[in-house]
Amino acid sequence: MTSWFSQHLAGLQDAWRRLVASPLNTALSLLVIGISLALPAAGWLFIDNLRLAVGNTGSLQQVSVFLADDADAAAIAEVERGLRQAKLGSVRFVPRDEALQALQAREGMADLTAGLPRNPLPDAFVVEADASPEALEAAVKAFAELPKVDDVHLDSAWMRRFDAFLHVARLVVALIGGVFAAGLVAVTFNTIRLQILAHAEEIEVARLIGAADDFIRRPFQYYGALQGALGGLLAVALVTAGGLLLADPVAGLAALYGGSFSLHGLVPLEIAALVGGGALLGWIGAQISVLIHLRRLG
């Protein structure tokens, strides 16, 4: 165990020494890796923020429950109880007269409604829901079954479109992430190739005095993983800096729409994923490179 630990520690130290030995090359490689990881991460964060921003605008998830003309106070109370039991969000009763007034208040509607012989609008409940499209669809079906409910309206088409848009956007980000991940592996592959060429003499000596392949590979594997992890940290810094720069303009934009919204940054799990993912991709690039190039060295 001690021997195993010593060998890995030596490999790690060796990798670190090689990284700091050529600071300019290391900095350039880290920049490439950092940007490769930052772009998909920023895209992912943008989609997440967009989802939250849209989720904050309650009108998008508004369910209107229209009552039958003959619904009396007892029936209205029972429907309200049924709506509240669903616990989807706030429930507000809109009497038919209030609905008509609201309609008349709209530009150009006053003249149109003035000619009506009677108020055609029913009493209604408006449910401001904070739930997934699937949950809302289920709730709409349940609400329609309530006594004295004539119709239930949900702007589900818009929500479905938005949900589909988010799905496509996530796919695009995943594809871009995949392409950049392949790029990161390629960058590490080439860096390790150059490292192997630069240390060819040392590799030869190590082999002659009894180094096994694992011993020779290990510093290069750690080099790739370290470089990837540091690139991941740089990506975190880039995304965080971008978020900080955009925070005020986004808050201002939200205020213009009468709401409040603040961008959320990377959570610890996402930071760990970026750093760990960078390390893993770096290790993969290094592993492929050492397998090919050490064999070529003989």
């Binding site: 001690t2 021997s3 010593s6 520690l9 003499e201 040392e202 030869e204 190590a206 005095i209 009894g210």
Partner: peptide
């Protein structure tokens, strides 16, 4: 076949690192 980027002690340490002797 000495390694010229490290000192004499580090050159002699290499075979011991290969067998995993504690530092």
């Amino acid at each position: 076949k000495l390694l010229f980027d490290r000192n004499a002690l580090a050159n002699v340490l290499l075979p011991l690192a290969i067998v995993g002797l504690p530092p």
